[in-house]
Each structure stands twice: as structure tokens, then as C-alpha cells.
Design a protein around this nucleic acid. Structure first.
Length: 598
DNA sequence: GCCGTTTTCGGCCCGACTGTTTTCAGTCG
């Protein structure tokens, strides 16, 4: 059993206990579920090595939970969980994924209307049967319908991070088949879109039958949707559809171009070809009946008078014109990051210690990191107040003294309150090497108010970086309504950096916002938002991809710089901010006023 | 149910919002 499956059982138990009104236990199960999910190695391996005693080394797992884990790992079942499920056989995770629905709502919906699934809920809401339930009303019903619409609009799509592994594994499997000359991943996966609907693989092979067989009979395949010599299609157990195309070597480049897309990019390229009295399709670039390119992508671009365009840019957002002018950006490369500036530890809601994070970051090749635990406004994480930060400063100094080869900076992820004030006093902020500021509450303010609140926080002279600027969670929560042009303008004016939070379900900023920011000359930082040692690679793995989609170069990113140059940039920003006029007091903002600010 | 540099028993999870209510329950971060 994988960690994610074990965690899921514990999450269910937390929800069932919550329904019973049991105190404290739900939180305990929730915490343990999180620890299991984040645990570096499979908990199953831990058990194999050290038995039930070893299970108790997972934080939040004591005797009772270790026994349940042991039962799950040895029998694949948990009697308590099954008993709950027998009494209330509902899709807990699915229903609770809808915004505004928690354990108690699930219970009411089940007991009053027999709702078991998201589909049941949709039917009941559309029939107007929700509004008459106790503690529900017309507005709750509307909210559920809205939540359902959001879930269905995103369903069928997958996070890039969940797709890369299985797709690469399948590509590797095909590459090992005799007679296969080339394998490539195409489609939106190659363009590194943050979410993908399906994946495309391209193969050049002398023996299409053998490749097709290896593809359709791969271990993860749940269903074969189509099976032919040039095109096959399967669905994995995760629901992801993967298409395979077998193409001749002479057409490989043209096919790769065609199947990488985007559609808009392809249309623009074909129009360009027509202007030159050429024809571009998935088999090649043709003048009359004669192919003048097709074997390689670069050859196709060249014959169209273009430099080769990196896949991340192929969205028809000006990349073709830039390629014509020879003005494509020198995109940031993997391996460019020297620092990671958003890291949570076990001082708040992270899983690992400062020292463990420092050692892991050093091993990953970082030269510096900033510890940025939450502040007191985020009470649920045990957020730091001024005194706790003073103690942490001493702990960080101790780590700097013992761990050589990496510099650990004192920072914080400081909460922005409703008025745009920060929840630490100025003296404490001034002592920090790096002040990240972030919104964690009041997501549903009107656009003008939300924007004004964040802009006001950005004007604080001690603030260095705006963390996860839009607050979105991919496939789960929309970004809050904020005027990004106003945020970019404020960053430009204050010299503040905007973060690309590379946690794979955030990727916040998104591509277009990154592009606007760098066009305005706003510095970017790319962070992992690590809550555990295993997360430290996120910046490198997902952040760089996303940054490339945003036309970002290494020079735009502060944490590509060596530590001294990085710190110098922060100092320049702070001295600049210190002489700028006092921030206006918080006051109700009219829509027009916010627009002028932009 | 877990945990321990005040504790092996007694704390943990708190504040704000929303929608449903006329004083509160549920959800969220």
C-alpha cells in the first residue's frame, strides 16, 4: 500500500470522527495522514525494516495508529474504517473536495437524501432538494452548484507533476523495444502546461507491431481504447489517456511539431507556410509534392525562416514574431537556482527540522536557503510570534555553525491581514534577512478591496517578496480576484520581488503573469514552498518549466545569483523603500480608486 | 489519539466568515 492510500484511510477516519463530534481525535488523524503522505520513504518499507515500532517514528503516529497502519499493511484493510464505511458508504473525499462541504454536511446529505456521490449531489442540487435541509438554504444550494461546476470544469485534467512520471516511464519502455529508433513525448506535457488533458507519445520504429504491443500491455494500462499500426490509445488506472503515434523517420520532426502544438501555434505556422507557397502538415513541409523539411523540428522552423522555438513558448503569444526577428528570450535553464527562499520547518507546519532541511538543500546543490515559517496569524500552524522568531534565530545560527557549505537565512512567511497590515512588529521584521508576505485569509474580497489590501502590504518597507501572489490551488481552488497589473505595478514601484511558488499544485504565478512581471522589470524568485525534505526539488523540477513558459530568463530571477549579490539586491530594495513616503492608512477603497492605483 | 526543556496527565484549535439563525453550526486556512 502506498503512502497516499494509507493517508486516505486516515483522512476518512478523521472525517467520520468529526461527524461523531469527537474532540481532538479528528485533528490527530488528520495530522498523521499529512505526515504519512509527506514521509520520504514508503511507510511500507519502514514497517518491513522495523515493524510496528518503526511506524511510531512517523510524527503523530502513536500506538493506536501504528496498529491500524500495521493492519492496513499486512491485510490491506482496516476494520474500523470498514465499519464506518458500512454505516455510511459515501465518497467522502469526492464530496468534501467541493468547496463548502465538510464532514457534517456529508452526514446530513447522506442521512436526509441518501447522497453517496458527487453525481447524487449534483442531481439533488439541480432538483432544489438541498435548500430545505436543516442548516442549508438557497444560498448553500447555489454555492454547491458553483462548487460542482468548478469541479466538473477541471475534472478530466491532471496535474503535470502526476503525469510526468508515468509518461516518461512508458516512453522508456517503448525505447527499449527492438527496432525503435526514436521516442519522444509530445503534446501539452512537452509544452509543460501546468495541467494536461491527455499525453502524446511519438515513436519511429521498424516494427510498429512490437511497439504497439509493448504500449498496450504496459503495467499501468487499465483499458485499451484503440489499437492500430500507426495509432493506439490507452487509459491508465489514474484515468489519464495516452495516445501513441508511430511515424516514419523522415516525418519525425514534422510530426513532433504537429503533435506538440499548441493548436494555435500550429495554425500560425501553417499560415506562415502558405505565405511562402509551402504546405505544412504532420508529414513534412512541402513545396508542391516535394518535401523540403520534416526529419527534424529545427529543419522545419529553419525552412520557414524561424529559429527553433522552445516548446514552452508555443502558444501563439508572439513567439513566432520573436523567432522571425531573432528575438526569442534566452530562457532560464534547469540547474540555475542557487537558493530556495520559501521553506517551512517543524517550527510550524513543515515536517522536518531546520538542520534536516539545510543538509538536504546542500545535498541538492543549493548555496543558500531561507527558513520562512508561518507567523501567528496562521494559528492552526502554530505560527511564530516575535519571541518564537527570536528563538528560531538562535536555532538557525546553531545550524549555520554546524552545517558547512550552505548559508541559512532567517525569514518568515508573514501573514497579510484584512487591512493589508503585517502580523509582526516592525522591529521583528527588520531583524529578518528575508520577509515573505502572503495572503492566507479573506479570499473572497471584492477585486478592488483585495488588490488594495495586497498593494498596501507590499508598500511595507521591510517586505521583500510577495509569496504565491494569487493563492490558487490547481484543479481545486480558483485564484482570488486580484488585479495582477496593479500588483505588478506596485512591485515595480517598490522594487519588491514576486514569487513563483513551485509547489506543483500551485505554480503561482502563472505563465502569463510571469511574463507581464518580467516585461515590467519586476524581479522574480522561484521557490519550492517546501514543507518537507522531499519538496526541495520542486523549484528545479517544476518551477523552471513554469518560468520558461513565462518567458523568464536567468537574469530575471534573484535566486540564480550568488548569495552576496542576492543579499545586495535585498538591501538595495530595503534602503529604497525606507526613504519612500509613509503608506496611507487602510480605508475602504472604491473601485475607481483601485484602478487609478493600477 | 498524541505528546513532553514547565507536563506521563492534561493540554491540544483558533479566528473569521457565511448562512442560518435571533445565538449558533459548519467550514476554512
Amino acid at each position: 500500500m502506498r503512502n497516499a492510500e494509507l493517508a486516505r484511510v486516515f483522512r476518512d477516519l478523521a472525517a467520520y470522527l468529526e461527524m461523531e463530534g469527537v474532540a481532538f481525535k479528528p485533528r490527530a488523524y488528520e495530522k498523521a495522514a499529512q505526515a504519512i503522505e509527506r514521509h520520504d520513504e514508503p511507510v511500507a518499507d519502514l514497517y518491513r525494516r522495523g515493524g510496528a515500532r518503526a511506524l511510531r517514528t512517523v510524527p503523530g503516529v502513536g500506538a493506536s495508529m501504528a496498529a491500524k497502519l500495521e493492519e492496513l499493511l499486512t491485510t490491506g484493510r482496516c476494520a474500523v474504517h470498514e465499519e464506518y464505511r458500512r454505516r455510511m458508504p459515501v465518497d467522502l473525499a469526492g464530496l468534501m473536495a467541493i468547496e463548502g462541504i465538510g464532514p457534517k454536511a456529508v452526514q446530513t446529505l447522506w442521512e436526509a437524501l441518501g447522497i453517496r456521490s458527487v453525481a447524487d449531489l449534483a442531481a439533488a442540487a439541480r432538483a432544489g432538494r438541498i435548500r430545505d435541509l436543516p442548516h442549508f438554504g438557497e444560498k448553500s444550494e447555489q454555492k454547491i452548484l458553483h462548487g460542482l461546476a468548478f469541479v466538473s470544469a477541471t475534472s478530466g485534467r491532471h496535474l503535470l507533476c502526476e503525469v510526468l512520471g508515468p509518461v516518461d516511464a512508458l516512453a522508456e519502455r517503448l525505447g527499449a523495444v527492438r527496432g525503435v529508433a526514436q521516442v519522444a513525448v509530445a503534446g501539452s506535457v512537452r509544452r509543460r502546461r501546468e495541467t494536461v488533458g491527455d499525453a502524446d507519445l511519438l515513436v519511429v520504429a521498424r516494427t510498429p507491431g512490437a511497439v504497439t504491443k509493448a504500449f498496450c500491455e504496459a503495467p499501468d494500462v487499465a483499458a485499451v481504447l484503440a489499437r492500430g499500426d500507426t495509432r493506439s490509445s490507452v487509459r491508465l488506472a489514474t484515468g489519464l489517456q495516452i495516445d501513441l503515434r508511430v511515424v516514419p523517420a523522415a516525418s519525425f520532426g514534422a510530426a513532433l511539431l504537429y503533435f506538440t502544438g499548441s493548436k494555435a501555434h500550429n495554425v500560425a505556422l501553417r499560415q506562415l507556410a502558405i505565405k511562402r507557397r509551402l504546405k505544412l502538415n504532420e508529414y513534412g513541409l512541402y513545396r508542391g509534392a516535394r518535401a523540403i523539411a520534416g526529419e527534424t523540428e529545427a529543419g522545419c522552423y529553419e525552412a520557414l525562416g524561424l529559429a527553433w522555438i522552445p516548446p514552452e513558448l508555443r502558444e501563439d503569444r508572439g513567439e513566432i514574431e520573436a523567432a522571425q526577428r531573432g528575438a526569442l528570450p534566452a530562457l532560464i535553464e534547469h540547474g540555475s537556482l542557487r537558493g530556495d527562499l520559501q521553506i517551512q520547518t517543524d517550527w510550524t507546519d513543515g515536517a522536518d527540522s531546520i538542520e534536516a532541511m539545510a543538509r538536504a538543500a546542500k545535498a541538492a546543490g543549493f548555496e543558500y536557503i531561507a527558513i520562512t515559517d508561518h507567523t501567528r496569524g496562521l494559528a492552526m500552524t502554530g505560527g511564530c510570534d516575535e519571541a518564537k522568531l527570536r528563538r528560531q534565530r538562535a536555532a538557525i545560527a546553531a545550524v549555520n555553525a554546524t552545517v558547512a557549505g550552505i548559508r541559512v537565512l532567517c525569514g518568515a512567511e508573514v501573514n497579510i491581514d484584512r487591512n493589508g497590515d503585517l502580523d509582526l512588529d516592525d522591529a521583528a521584521l527588520a531583524r529578518l534577512d528575508l520577509v515573505g508576505i502572503a495572503v492566507h485569509s479573506h479570499f473572497h474580497l471584492a477585486r478592488a478591496e483585495q488588490t488594495a489590501r495586497i498593494v498596501r502590504a507590499m508598500q511595507h518597507p521591510h517586505a521583500d517578496v510577495l509569496f504565491h501572489p494569487t493563492g490558487r490551488v490547481l484543479l481545486r481552488r480558483e485564484a482570488y480576484d486580484v488585479d495582477m497589473d496593479a500588483i505588478v505595478a506596485a512591485a515595480r514601484k517598490t522594487g519588491m520581488a514576486l514569487e513563483l511558488d513551485a509547489f506543483p499544485d500551485r505554480l503561482d504565478l502563472r505563465d502569463e503573469h510571469l511574463r507581464r512581471a518580467v516585461a515590467a522589470g519586476v524581479p522574480i524568485v522561484i521557490d519550492s514552498d517546501a514543507h518537507a525534505v522531499a519538496h526541495l526539488g520542486f523549484g528545479e523540477r517544476y518551477g523552471i518549466d513554469q518560468a520558461r513558459r513565462g518567458w523568464v530568463t536567468a537574469a530575471d530571477v534573484l535566486n540564480t545569483r550568488p548569495i552576496e549579490r542576492f543579499l545586495a539586491a535585498l538591501r538595495r530594495r530595503r534602503s529604497r523603500a525606507a526613504v519612500s513616503p509613509r503608506r496611507p492608512a487602510a480605508q475602504p477603497v472604491r473601485r475607481t480608486a483601485a484602478r487609478r492605483q493600477a
